[in-house]
């Protein structure tokens, strides 16, 4: 089972649907049963999942406060650091960092060192629409995604990791910003794969493949 973490912010239907479609495509190709996708706010269910997806819409402070209130922080950290695959999406990338300019004084999860900053010196905020993934570092999540593919973004803040070797793609908006990170089986992207059509479906399929492989490395 792949857990999609629900902390009461925003609509998770499209993330769930994207993962269900991706799991069906991947698993029918290899004749396996597709893993279930479960939207949950229960830390025990998250702790029990094969893989964990942390979506996010809304504000940084509200999101981390609500995750803590629901007792989900440890389950997320465990999935991010441990061998189970993890995928953060949009705010689900930003809250991995220690803090954000969006919510001063409210600590993030601090699993990745760096900062989250507001876009400045750009004509329009939010950065909304289709933008290109550039200088893609071919990792398991972005395998087969051609350089300069378009993905759908909507955000006013961007993450800036201290360790640039974590960055798996860059995008351009008033300067270069980090549009995805990855290490081992932990991934996070600023764009929305569930809204990025073919490119997004491919990314979600890659995540399902990583999940199946992590559960049974002999596959």
């Amino acid at each position: 089972m792949i857990a999609v973490i629900d902390y009461g912010a925003g609509n998770l239907a499209s993330v769930r649907r994207g993962l269900v479609v991706a799991a069906q495509v991947v698993c029918s190709a290899v004749g396996e049963l597709a893993p279930a996708v479960r939207v949950t706010g229960d830390p025990a269910v998250v702790a029990d999942a094969m893989a964990v997806v942390l979506p996010g819409v809304g504000a940084f402070g509200d999101a981390v406060t609500e995750l803590r209130r629901r007792g989900l922080e440890d389950a997320i950290a465990e999935a991010f650091i441990g061998p189970r695959p993890f995928l953060g999406i949009c705010l689900g990338l930003q809250i991995l960092f220690p803090s954000s300019e969006e919510s001063p004084g409210i600590p993030g999860l601090g699993l990745v060192s760096g900062s989250v900053r507001r876009f400045r010196h750009v004509p329009k905020v939010p950065h909304m629409g289709w933008n290109q993934l550039e200088a893609i570092e071919p990792n398991a999540l972005l395998r087969g995604i051609p350089d300069r593919s378009y993905a759908y973004f909507v955000h006013s803040y961007y993450a800036d990791p201290d360790d640039s070797s974590l960055v798996t793609s860059w995008s351009e908006y008033g300067g270069r910003f980090c549009s995805s990170i990855g290490t081992g089986t932990a991934f996070a992207c600023q764009f929305h794969p569930e809204k990025s059509q073919r490119v997004g479906l491919r990314i979600l399929q890659n995540f399902v493949r990583v999940t199946i492989h992590a559960a049974d490395p002999s596959d």
Binding site: A13, S14, R17, G18, Y152, V154, H192, E194, K195, S196, Q197, G200, L201
Partner: peptide
Amino acid sequence: TAEHVSIP
């Protein structure tokens, strides 16, 4: 619609 489209 949400069940069937993959754009915003």
